[in-house]
Design a protein around this nucleic acid. Structure first.
Length: 486
DNA sequence: AAAAAAT
């Protein structure tokens, strides 16, 4: 089936063809005809499903006739983050190149000047984050009563970020005769309520069940000590065939620190988080897209919706606090039919979080890697000091590592020796690369599920950083399959 | 435990 059957104009089809797309995705097939008919829709779809084009394309054709009047945008798209808003704007530019539509992007962190000018002239398409939109509304710069089409993008994210009251406020400012499209990865009760209140007899389109992770993504967990994370990550970055990777941290400070560290080690890395200047956020993204950097260290500002081509790997430097965020983070890879690899660094403190994730995705994630040396034997008694009360029956533990899908990996390396000495600093970083690299490297990262160059690292001598309560010590507890909550 | 968004 091609785009031609969907009822779009020839100019639009030409722009789509120029973008290299031949076949509509399932959500596009379902949504585009409905939107063209003027129906309200609820699209339950994950990002990466072609969701954006499913509303951008029909909107361009609907808006093709007519003209935006001053301060009265004809359509409004609200997105939770600035980058997502920008991404939607890029889509309008790409697909609208044969149309003469005016557009304004209303996001925080950028000056009012251009935004004001565009609004004053009148726009067909207004794309905004809620905060700046309401700000501009209160300044009297926009009238929302002329909006014929409203899109609420990534509603579940809006919910997580506490934007629902803002969104409700915005909805209540719009005129009654409009078409509304709502997209969300989940239909949590507050979102359902929002839809009930502001949508008119919506058709529900469901593409992929939420919390189902993309089958194109090979996921694994890699056990590591809390103080070994940087070593482990660098090792991974070298062992894997990384063409471009996003490394997620839970904290903005760690994003900065880790990115700086990687740069010191010679990696082409950059960072993005919400405390950075908007200019820098966007330029880092551009650098990443243009392959001027290959590693993007990011906070969850980049977890959802960002559509960057060719991301080969996702590394969770920290296990995300929200299980949903895990799904979104790894969803930045394996897009558009490609395969992707997602590796999550796990320390003993992350047991509950991992349990939550596995519960959400309804699957056990493959454990990769050497558990640190089993000091005990394989005897049943070993289970006791591992903290796994209800030891699983057929766990197939073996010395030096746990069983993985492909059988015992011989890569299971001697684990760091535990020495009893006080821990000075987490990591004495600013050492020149050469000096540091020549040192024995950390425990090799075991081979992933698909063939990659063998890790070149050899077992190393214990260092101070090795001492760490987060280190896996003793038998590997099976907590990872035990649900910790409820 | 954090991050996101208006100044």
């Amino acid at each position: 089936m091609s785009f031609h059957a969907l009822g779009l104009s020839d100019e639009l089809l030409a722009a789509v063809a120029d973008s290299g797309y031949n076949e509509p995705t399932p959500i596009q097939r379902q949504a585009i005809p409905l939107v063209l008919m003027g129906r309200d829709i609820i699209g339950v779809a994950q990002t990466g499903t072609g969701k954006t084009a499913s509303f951008v394309l029909p909107m361009i054709d609907i808006l093709a006739h007519g003209r935006g009047r001053a301060r009265m945008p004809r359509s409004l798209i609200i997105a939770p983050t600035r980058e997502l808003a920008d991404q939607v704007a890029q889509n309008f530019l790409k697909y609208g190149k044969n149309h003469n539509l005016s557009m304004a992007l209303l996001i925080g962190g950028v000056s009012f000047g251009d935004q004001d000018k565009a609004l004053e002239k009148g726009v067909d398409v207004l794309i905004a984050t809620p905060g700046r939109l309401l700000d501009q509304f209160e300044r009297g710069k926009i009238l929302l009563s002329g909006v014929d089409i409203l899109v609420i993008d990534e509603a579940d994210r809006m919910l997580d970020m506490g934007f629902i009251p803002d969104v409700e406020r915005i909805c209540s400012l719009l005129g009654p005769n409009r078409q509304s499209l709502l997209f969300s990865a989940t239909m949590a009760p507050p979102i359902k309520k929002l839809a009930d209140r502001f949508l008119n007899d919506p058709r529900m389109i469901e593409v992929a069940r939420q919390s189902s992770t993309n089958a194109n993504i090979a996921q694994s967990l890699l056990m590591t000590g809390a103080r070994d994370k940087r070593d482990t990550l660098r090792e991974l970055l070298r062992a894997e065939e990384v063409t471009s990777a996003i490394v997620f941290c839970n904290r903005k400070r760690d994003v900065n620190d880790l990115a700086d560290s990687l740069k010191r080690y010679g990696f082409r890395a950059g960072q993005i988080h919400g405390d950075m200047e908007q200019r820098d956020r966007l330029s880092t993204l551009e650098d990443f897209k243009a392959d001027r950097i290959s590693i993007l260290v990011a906070s969850d500002v980049a977890a959802r919706g960002l559509d960057i081509k060719g991301v080969s790997h996702i590394f969770n430097y920290d296990v995300p606090f929200n299980a949903e965020d895990y799904v979104h983070r790894i969803g930045r890879t394996g897009r558009a039919g490609k395969t992707g690899i997602a590796v999550t660094l796990v320390t003993s403190a992350d047991a509950d979080l991992v349990a939550d994730i596995e519960k959400l995705i309804g699957a056990r994630i493959e454990r990769r890697g050497a558990a640190p040396l089993e000091t005990g034997s394989e005897s049943k008694a070993a289970g006791k000091d591992g903290g796994d009360k209800d030891a699983a029956p057929a766990r197939g533990r073996s010395r030096g590592g746990r069983r993985t899908k492909g059988g015992d990996r011989k890569a299971a390396a001697p684990a760091p020796e535990i020495v009893a000495a006080p821990v000075p600093e987490p990591e004495p970083e600013p050492e020149p690369k050469a000096a540091r690299e020549s040192k024995a490297a950390p425990a090799p990262v075991p081979a992933p599920a698909r063939p990659t160059p063998a890790p070149k690292a050899a077992p190393r001598a214990a260092r101070d950083e090795d001492i760490d309560d987060g280190t896996w010590n003793g038998p590997v507890p099976d907590f990872l399959s035990v649900s910790a909550r409820d």
